[in-house]
Amino acid sequence: MELIIQTLVNGLLIGGIFIMIAVGFTLAFGVMDIIDFAVGEWVMLGAFAAYWLQTLVHVDPLLFFPVIMLTFGAAAYVFQPVLQSVINIKHRSAALMALAFTFGLSTFFRGAALTLWGFNNRNIVTFLSDQSINILGITLPALRVAATVFAVIITIGFMVFLNKTKTGVAIRAAAENKTIAGLMGIDGQKVARTVYAIYAALTSLAGVFIGSIFSVNPDMGLRYTAFAFFVVVAGGMGSFAGAIAAAILLGLIASFVSVYVGGAYIFLILFLFLYFVLLFFSKGILGKGL
C-alpha cells in the first residue's frame, strides 16, 4: 500500500515538471502552428545553463532561475522571426518545412552540445538537493516538490495572464483564429514572438529543474522531446486542460511502469499509448483538442 502511494506521489511530482513543458509547448503550437522538434533541446540547454551558472559563477542555479528564463526568453524573441520566415515559406508542404526546420535546429543543438561538452553526465547541486520531507512514511524529495509547486504557480499565473491581461487575450485570440484576430488589430507577428519567448523561458526553467533532479548531459533532449510530444498529442493539440492532464498522466505512467513493470518498458508503453491515442482519440484524452 505504501509503495502504491509512494509511486503515485512520485508520478504526480514528475508530472508537475512536465506541466511546465506542456503549457508553453501547447501555446506555441496553438499560435504558431508549429510542432517544435527542438523542445527537448531547450530543456537540455536550460539544464546546461544551470550547470554553468553553478560551475563558473558559483551561485545556486535554482535561486537564479529568473536570469536563465530571461536569457532564454530574449534569445527566443530575437530568433523567432527566422522561424516565422520558415513557417511563411510558400511551398507545397509548408508544414513539413517548418517541422523539418525545427528538426534541423534540434540536431544542431544536440551536435553542438555533444561537441562542446562531451558525453559525460554532470550534476547540479542546489540548496534543495538531498533534502526531503517525510509524511506518514511517504518520502517527498524537496526538489521535486519545489518543481511541482513552481509548475502550479506558473500555470496559475499563466492562466491569469492569458485571461486577464490585454496581451493574454490577444494571444488567445491569435491562437483561435489568426486572420480574424488580425482584423481586430492584433499584431500576429508580435504575439507569435511573445509566445515563442514565453515557451522558451518555461522550457528552460523545466530544464533547470530536470537537470537538478536527474543529471545533465547533451543527449537528454530526445527523451523530453518524446515526452512533450506525448503530452501535446495525448492532451489534444492546442488544448491547455488536456495538456495538463496528459502531463500528469505521463508522470503516473512513467512512475508506475518503472516500479511495477520495469524501467526498460517505459518508452515502449509510452509510444504504444501515444500511437493508439493518436489513432483513436486524435482530439486527446479529454476530447478538447483541435
Binding site: 527566422v82 520566415s85 520558415v86 515559406i89 511551398h91 518545412m97 523539418a100 526546420f101 528538426f103 534541423g104 535546429l105 534540434s106 540536431t107 544542431f108 543543438f109 544536440r110 551536435g111 553542438a112 555533444l114 561537441t115
Partner: peptide, 20 residues
C-alpha cells in the same frame, strides 16, 4: 558529433533558402 552540427545547420539553411 561535429557531423550533427553541420547536418543541423545544413537542414536549416536548405529549408530557409532553398526549399525546392
Amino acid at each position: 558529433s561535429s557531423y550533427l552540427v553541420i547536418l543541423g545547420l545544413a537542414i536549416c539553411f536548405i529549408i530557409r533558402f532553398l526549399p525546392e
